[in-house]
Each structure stands twice: as C-alpha cells, then as structure tokens.
C-alpha cells in the first residue's frame, strides 16, 4: 500500500513537472534567445541558458532600429480604447440580461454568441469598405471599433455572470432606503462586481493589444502600426537580428502575462457561464 502510494505520487510529480516544462519552455526560450547574439544562436550549439549580462543591451537595441516603442504605444491606444468602449456598452447590456426578462432576450443572447463563430477573415473585406467610406482606414479609432465588436460580447458574458451572483435583496433593500432606480446600477451593482469588471477590462484590453488581422489589413502607415503588425513584419525577414526580434516580442508579451495572472479565474467562469445562456 505504501509502495503504491509512493509510486503514484512519483508519477504525479513527474507528470506535473512535464506539464510545467512544456508550458513554460517557449516563454523561457523567448527570454533566452533574446540574450544571445545571432552568431551564438546560429553557431550550431544550443544556448540553453540566458546570458544575463546581455539582457539590457538586447532591449535597447531592439528599440533602436525599428519604431518598437511607437508600435507599443499604438497598441496601448487601441487596447485602452477597446477596453473603454467595450466596458461601457457591456455593463449596460449585461445589466439588462441579468435583471430583466424581455422579448428578444434570446435573440440578443444568440447574436452575442454568434460573434464567436464569425470568421474575421469573412468580415474584414466588408469592414474595409465601410471604414473606407467613413475615413477610418489607417486610423487607430477604426481598429478600436472593429476590435470592440469581438471583445464586447465576451465582456457581456463575464459581467452578466458576475451580476447574476449578486442577490436581488441588496437592490431591493437599497430601493426601500430611497435609492433611485437609475442609480441602482452605478451605486449598488458596479461596486459589488468590481473584480469582474477588472477581469473584463483585462480581457478586452488584450483583445485590442493582441489583435493582428484587422491591424494588418486596415493600417498601412508604418508609424501607426500596432506592435502585433510590427512584430509580424519580422517573420520571414532576415535583416533584424533574431535576438532583437525576441527582445521586442518579450516587451510585447510581458504585460499580457502579468495582467492575465491576476484575473484568469474570473475570465474563465464568465466565458463558460455566458456562452450558453447568453
């Protein structure tokens, strides 16, 4: 019995280590590659460990040859815009879905879910002609608008499932205390679901931060590229040294990792909860 126990815990330990290595290795590799010169990288010898002395120089040279900082700040503009627009729209819609019964609720919920089935590759051409008409091409506002179309429904799910968790009695007692109906959402509900708002904010932020297809199609001016398009331009291009590319990719990745770690759980419960009921 004890032997079996030791054996099963050894198997378990091995399995966990394997998973951690497989999941973490590419990120480790991104970091390690960023700290080696191309001569070392292509010299036929695998550089397993990062060269920490070269850490800072890689970063500074990654930002010198290309407008990487400019691209990152463009990404930040798109990401903040997407977050702001998505949250305002989503908070209102989520409140209706959570607190009211109304005709058309099912259709509305389905329309939200349907956005997850739409291939962006199908919408990109019609959106291009719409944006052309309204002068939104080569314009970061246009990207905010198209990214919000995909980010906002996800925010609605997260917020709706959080609002469902708030007991109705709280709102009822607030009403008895004289809180006007229109203030119910802003003064009672929103403070109670603040953590989920943060989760929705992070996920919408990174929808804008990571998005590539629309950015690639709508933005041609290199000064206006977001970092996703800027980084993708290094693929298949052999002028920029690989370690600089990797350092740039690391700068693009780190904020995402840090933010996601904080809010992962709430995102998940919202996504699965909302996708069915809408």
């Amino acid at each position: 019995m004890t032997l079996r126990k030791t054996l099963s815990s050894a198997v378990r330990g091995f399995g966990i280590s394997l998973l951690v290595v497989v999941a973490g290795f590419p990120v480790y590799w991104l970091f390690t590659t960023a700290t080696h010169t191309t001569a070392e990288l292509f010299g036929g010898q695998v550089q397993w460990l990062p060269d920490l002395r070269r850490f800072l120089t890689s970063f500074t040279s990654a930002t010198s040859g290309v407008p990487m900082l400019r691209w990152l700040s463009n990404s930040a503009v798109v990401a903040f815009g997407t977050t702001f627009l998505s949250l305002i729209i989503a908070i209102l819609a989520a409140y209706a879905l959570s607190r009211y019964r109304f005709r058309g609720k099912g259709v509305f919920g389905f329309a939200l879910f349907a956005t997850q089935m739409l291939p962006e590759a199908l919408l990109v051409v019609p959106l291009y002609s719409i944006f052309l008409t309204f002068g939104l091409l080569d314009n970061l506002t246009g990207l905010v608008l198209s990214d919000t179309a995909f980010a906002m429904p996800v925010a609605v799910w997260i917020l709706k499932s959080a609002m469902d968790g708030v007991s109705l009695e709280i709102e009822e007692s607030a009403r008895v205390d004289g809180c006007p109906r229109y203030a119910m959402l802003t003064q009672i509900m929103l403070p109670l679901i603040a953590p989920s708002i943060a989760a929705a904010a992070v996920i919408t932020f990174f929808e804008g931060w990571n998005e590539y297809l629309f950015a690639n199609t709508f933005i041609t001016d290199e000064q206006k590229w977001p970092a996703s398009k800027g980084l993708a331009s290094f693929i298949g291009e052999f002028v920029t040294p690989l370690n600089h590319v990797m350092a740039a990719a690391l700068m693009f990745t780190l904020p995402a990792i840090v933010f996601f770690l904080f809010v992962q759980r709430r995102i998940v419960s919202g996504l699965t909860a909302g996708s069915v009921k809408g």
Partner: peptide
C-alpha cells in the same frame, strides 16, 4: 506557469515557435 501560453499574444507565440 501553466497559464502562460494563454497569455502570450499569438504573434509572439508564432515568433517563438518558428524559431523552435
């Protein structure tokens, strides 16, 4: 660490994997 892959932006993931 197991959540890392989800957080890595697709474009960055592609850069890493094409190098690997």
């Amino acid at each position: 660490i197991l959540t890392f892959p989800w957080a890595v932006p697709s474009v960055a993931a592609v850069l890493i994997f094409s190098w690997i």
